[in-house]
């Protein structure tokens, strides 16, 4: 079984990395659509999600096929389990990016201006987290993955800061309410993406060591 299986496994891993690259690209474009208020770019990003969806299904089918045909164990089993989970997280990240693009299409420029610095910093941090999580997955690097995990708190702090800013601004500017909801949604989706990137990083720790590190309390 070995040579053929190892070849197919490697192919599948590369395929997930290509999908990760596509998702990173979609996220970058959706953030760009927000900050440049570019409707065409937002629409294009939304359509690219279809590519991610079909790729997600293909990767899942291939993973299940390899599990059924080769009944892998050890590091091979861990890799296939990780592929399944990373695949799922990547698809969800693309969904979040679509949500961000949809908000970008009717975002109030005036409200955006008030939160731009926080959102830019948060988006940049989230993109960086995702990139590092994907790199850690490619290299099966435990330490790199653990570094990603530790970044999640900073993203949460940005999210809390944006909520506070909205709460402070809302009473004096009821006409900003719709814009604030859009900003809040964008921030929430970025925060969710950071969570998915953290999930990927935690899966990499499992892949590298066999240890499940998802919950601090266990």
């Amino acid at each position: 079984m070995t040579a053929q299986f190892v070849h197919l496994l490697e192919q599948l891993k590369r395929r997930t990395l290509r999908m990760a690259s596509l998702v990173e690209d979609i996220l970058m474009e959706s953030c760009e659509a927000v900050f440049s208020l570019d409707d065409k770019l937002a629409v294009r990003t939304i359509h690219r999600d279809n590519d991610v969806d079909s790729e997600e299904v293909e990767i899942e089918v291939q993973t299940i096929r390899l599990m059924a045909l080769y009944q892998p164990v050890g590091c091979d089993l861990r890799l296939l389990c990780t592929i399944l989970k990373v695949n799922n997280d990547l698809e969800r990240i693309a969904d979040c990016a679509v949500n961000i693009s949809e908000r970008a299409r009717h975002l109030d420029p005036l409200v955006l201006q008030g939160h731009r610095d926080d959102l830019v910093a948060m988006a940049s941090m989230v993109q960086d987290m995702l990139h590092r999580a994907v790199e850690a997955y490619g290299a099966q690097a435990e330490q790199q993955a653990r570094d990603v995990q530790s970044s999640d708190a900073a993203v949460d702090a940005f999210y809390a800061q944006i909520i506070r800013a909205i709460v402070d601004d809302a009473p004096g500017h009821p006409d900003h309410m719709a814009g604030h909801l859009d900003v809040l949604s964008i921030a929430k989706n970025l925060e969710r993406i950071a969570d998915h990137a953290t999930n990927i990083a935690e899966d990499v720790v499992f892949l590298a060591t066999g240890r499940i590190v998802r919950h601090d309390t266990i």
Binding site: T2, F5, P72, V73, G74, R78, G210
Partner: peptide, 19 residues
């Protein structure tokens, strides 16, 4: 369970994965 998911020794890993 551990031998077939996370063996400690590289030789075990190589054998159970068919290397």
């Amino acid at each position: 369970d551990l031998i077939f998911t996370s063996p400690k020794q590289e030789r075990t890993q190589d054998y159970i994965t068919g290397r």
